[in-house]
Write a protein that binds this DNA or RNA. Structure first.
Length: 260
DNA sequence: CGTCCTGTTATCGG
DNA sequence: GCCGATAACAGGAC
């Protein structure tokens, strides 16, 4: 379930560990998520050093030479850095060994996800309709995007990666909960002030998750995230959290705080 | 055993 | 062409 904050935590794991080390060996255990020939992949990386990382939405780019190793984690992906081959994680699909004896594994429990070498990030983003990163939007840009998505449900608009990249099912529920917006509200019916609230909630929720390094910690109690799965009571008003369905995907909301 | 569930993509109908 | 609904993908968890 990596959404923007989880991918950001992967980036923060890689930055102090896997950069500026010569790649010596690449072992591909399962080439299903590798969207290019294994031979070509290895040849491009062996002998090279990663120099920096860049995240865009749920995509992570690891720069080397003038190219990028692109990782998309889909539903079950993660990365792990370690220095003893015995610690190679379960479901490690691709293992990158550095000359100093350290390793970086690209892990995916299921086979969904993408690993690829791409040139320009902006070019890749354009070709694959990856919209602007949710944390790099100005309020004016956000308003323009919402104007273009005005016929959509609020939830669907937030999750449209071509409009804004980085927000998935769980975070969209959390953002709408904090903004007190019913998920199936049509964007066109939102007042300008509510759009601003929505914008602020996006930043607040995503930045909170990043600051907490959410991969390893939990959200504060007043977040929906902790209470959603068990359909507990709303941490703000105490009434029951309700499960709903949207495009055959399920979500949660508080009917009292997020009235229709 | 069947159902759930995640992100993305393709396809269909409105 | 935009939108929502649906299924497909894959497989571990329950």
């Amino acid at each position: 379930m990596p959404e923007l904050p989880e991918v950001e935590s992967f980036r923060k794991e890689i930055d102090p560990s896997a950069l500026n080390k010569e790649i010596s060996t690449i072992t591909v255990h399962d080439d299903y998520i590798l969207k290019m020939p294994t031979k070509e992949f290895k040849e491009a990386l062996i002998g090279k050093k990663f120099t920096r990382t860049e995240r865009r939405g749920k995509y992570l780019f690891i720069h080397f030479d003038s190219k990028n190793l692109m990782l998309h984690f889909a539903m079950s992906g993660t990365v792990k850095y370690y220095n003893n081959p015995k610690n190679e994680p379960e479901y490690s699909k691709i293992q990158i060994e550095f000359k100093n004896g350290d390793y970086l594994s690209i892990v995916s429990v299921r086979k969904l996800g993408r690993v690829q070498i791409v040139n320009e990030i902006s070019e890749y983003a354009k070709e694959n309709e990856i919209g602007p990163d949710a944390l790099k939007l100005t309020l004016d840009e956000f308003k323009m995007i919402m104007e273009n998505k005005k016929r959509s449900y609020a939830k669907t608009a937030l999750m449209d990666q071509s409009a804004i990249s980085g927000i998935g099912n769980e975070y969209s529920d959390e953002i709408l909960f904090q903004a007190k917006i019913y998920p199936k509200t049509k964007i066109s019916t939102l007042k300008s002030a509510t759009i601003e609230t929505l914008y602020e909630s996006i930043l607040e929720v995503l930045n909170t998750a990043i600051e907490l390094n959410i991969k390893n910690t939990k959200f504060p109690n007043e977040y929906l995230m902790l209470h959603r799965d068990k359909e507990e009571n709303c941490p703000k008003c105490g009434s029951g959290i309700k499960r709903y369905e949207i495009s055959s995907r399920h979500g949660f909301y508080c009917p009292k705080c997020q009235s229709e």
